[in-house]
């Protein structure tokens, strides 16, 4: 049973000068699923992420996001093609980065509070005048942030500086911060990079927990095959900017095309 895609690309291509990073990629993420994107280094996975989140404008092709409307109405289809990253986030995509990008000199809680930016309305006037509305909003967001941290295991570290956290917790914080933006699609770029086996296991649990509690779709780029096999429902494989396989984890694992891509010609 397939559900409608929350996001899909059609004919997506991206070239940098002479280098073709993405080549006619037709890709989709089923709503509510945990989907993995794998492939050897340089396959274009992060480039795909960057196109989806507005960091690079695509050279060709379309990116379409489905947003539900009221009952009985068909979903709204929005093109993400030439939007800025902050606009894309406002539409419901959140991401983490290959190299952790936390706000290092701010506390854990402040990192999450910044994630709440799109949920808040206060502007310059509200900030300066400290209106009742602004104060209520601040308090609500602080509550929300602390609870989000506690929900996913970092409540005790709320007032620590982000840069002082151990590596595994930093990754976790980046994910929680992304959740704070209230996404419908969470993109994780190599979340297991640098984690040991125990930490990867915890990550596995975290991903499942998030999908269960937050009612969103998850797309992850990953090299750790154990994690991919364990947690994902569908796997897409890229090589040299092209999609070469897609399917259930077991299928893809045994696909000779995929094996060849990773191991090279025999």
């Amino acid at each position: 049973m397939t559900r409608p895609p929350i996001i899909e690309t059609r004919g997506l291509s991206k070239t940098f000068g002479g280098l073709v990073a993405l080549d006619e990629v037709d890709f989709q993420v089923e709503e509510g699923s945990i989907t993995a994107l794998i492939g050897p280094n340089g396959a274009g996975k992060t480039t795909l992420f960057n196109c989806l989140t507005g960091i690079y404008p695509p050279t060709r092709g379309h990116i379409v996001l489905r947003r539900p409307r009221g009952a009985g109405e068909p979903p709204l289809k929005t093109a993400l093609n030439n939007l800025r990253p902050d606009q894309v986030t406002a539409l419901g995509l959140a991401r983490t980065f290959q190299n952790i990008r936390l706000f290092n000199n701010l506390t854990v809680l402040e990192n999450v509070l910044i994630g709440c930016h799109t949920r808040m309305k206060a502007g310059l006037w509200g900030a300066l005048m400290r209106t009742r509305q602004t104060r209520a909003e601040e308090r609500a967001m602080a509550e929300f942030s602390i609870e989000l941290l506690e929900k996913y295991g970092l409540g005790a570290a709320a007032n620590d500086l982000a840069k002082n956290l151990p590596y595994g917790d930093q990754r976790r914080l980046e994910i929680i911060r992304a959740l704070a933006t209230g996404p419908r699609l969470l993109l994780l770029d190599e979340p297991a990079a640098g984690l040991n086996i125990a930490e990867t296991g915890a990550l596995d649990d975290l991903i499942r927990l998030i999908r269960e509690r937050e009612n969103l779709s998850i797309l992850l780029i990953e090299h750790d095959m154990n994690l991919v096999m364990s947690v994902s429902e569908k796997v897409w494989v890229m090589e040299y900017g092209r999609l070469i396989a897609a399917g259930a984890p077991e299928e893809v694992k045994n696909d000779p095309v995929v094996i060849r891509a990773y191991l090279g010609e025999e």
Binding site: T53, R84, R95, I114, H117, T181
Partner: peptide, 12 residues
């Protein structure tokens, strides 16, 4: 702290 991450938070 980080302009790229800043944008990813929905900040213009």
């Amino acid at each position: 702290e980080d302009e790229v991450a800043c944008q990813a938070m929905g900040i213009n």
